[in-house]
């Protein structure tokens, strides 16, 4: 980046494994304040895990995550929960509380963390629902909502406490083009109007390119590219090129690693009676 911007989240040499599998192998990146940063990578590259590491929901094997200068994984439970009041997270499924209706879901963080009178909560909830265009659905139960609507309600809930940063976990997955368009617009306008810092985890290149100021690409546990979207679009070789342009073969081979095709057919490794 050329312009000098303040950093809100800083990840230093982060390592994380699940069982035998190394998900992150020394990732270092920083997320600027007030911008939309997209973290991209193929399915299974641990993008959601990265969000959970930033939010302190998972402990890393080694490395550090700083949010507003605080080391997230060194904080006491109380301090961590205080920090989380400044965070909003939009889960892939929406993760609305199933036994509360739309209005109560959005009111939930307000009721838990503030002592506002009922009229103020009512007004605030309506404002948040109006912002996502779902004021009309306030009486509906989560089971009655479509996937896109659930995410929008979850977004209204995520901004209920006016957070400083908001994390989006794969917001476009499985959505129709209209809903994708709505979500793209919402993420953009909310970031601007509320002065948020948005971190977007996604592998939908087209949508990300429309809104992200800054993009990090991770693959096989490492950060392999970062920069503005223009810089990444101009990349003409290697993995980033394959990923951004959706090419079927390249540094990521079409075939999952395996023994040789003929050996497999002849049953050399499995001991089964092959074609030989």
């Amino acid at each position: 980046m050329t312009e000098k911007v303040e950093t809100l989240i800083e990840i230093k040499d982060l390592t994380f494994s699940r069982g035998e599998r190394k998900i992150f192998d020394g990732i270092t990146l920083s997320i600027p304040k007030g911008k939309i940063t997209a973290i991209m990578g193929p399915s299974g590259s641990g993008k959601t895990t990265l969000l959970k590491l930033i939010a302190g929901q998972l402990p890393p094997d080694s490395g550090e995550v700083f949010v507003e200068g605080l080391n997230v994984h060194q904080l006491s439970r109380k301090k961590l929960y205080q920090l989380r009041r400044k965070m909003g997270m939009l889960f892939q499924s929406g993760a609305l509380l199933a036994d509360l209706n739309v209005f109560e879901n959005v009111a939930f963080p307000l009721r838990e963390h503030t002592k506002l009178p009922e009229e103020v909560i009512y007004a605030l909830v309506l404002m948040k629902l109006q912002a996502v265009g779902l004021r009309g659905a306030k009486e509906m139960m989560p089971s009655e909502l479509s996937g896109g609507m659930s995410r929008r309600v979850a977004l209204a809930r995520g901004i209920a406490l006016d957070p400083e940063m908001i994390f989006y976990d794969e917001p476009f997955v499985g959505q129709d083009p209209i809903t994708k368009g709505v979500l793209v617009k919402l993420i953009k306008t909310l970031n601007e109007s509320l002065g948020l810092t948005s971190v977007l985890v996604s592998h939908d290149v087209d949508e990300v390119m429309m809104i992200a100021d800054y993009i990090c690409v991770i693959s096989e546990g490492k950060l392999i590219a970062e920069g503005t979207k223009e810089a990444l679009l101009n990349e003409s070789t290697g993995y980033v090129n394959q990923f951004i342009h959706g090419l079927p073969d390249g540094p990521v081979p079409f075939h999952f690693p395996n023994v040789s095709y003929t050996d497999d057919l002849e049953g050399v490794h499995t001991g089964k009676r092959g074609l030989k």
């Binding site: 959970k52 939010a55 929901q57 929960y81 205080q82 989380r84 009041r85 965070m87 909003g88 997270m89 889960f91 993760a95 609305l96 509380l97 939930f108 963080p109 838990e112 963390h113 979850a154 809930r157 406490l161």
Partner: peptide, 8 residues
């Protein structure tokens, strides 16, 4: 997870 993220 959502509860945790809402600091509940």
């Amino acid at each position: 997870s959502a509860l945790e993220m809402m600091a509940v």
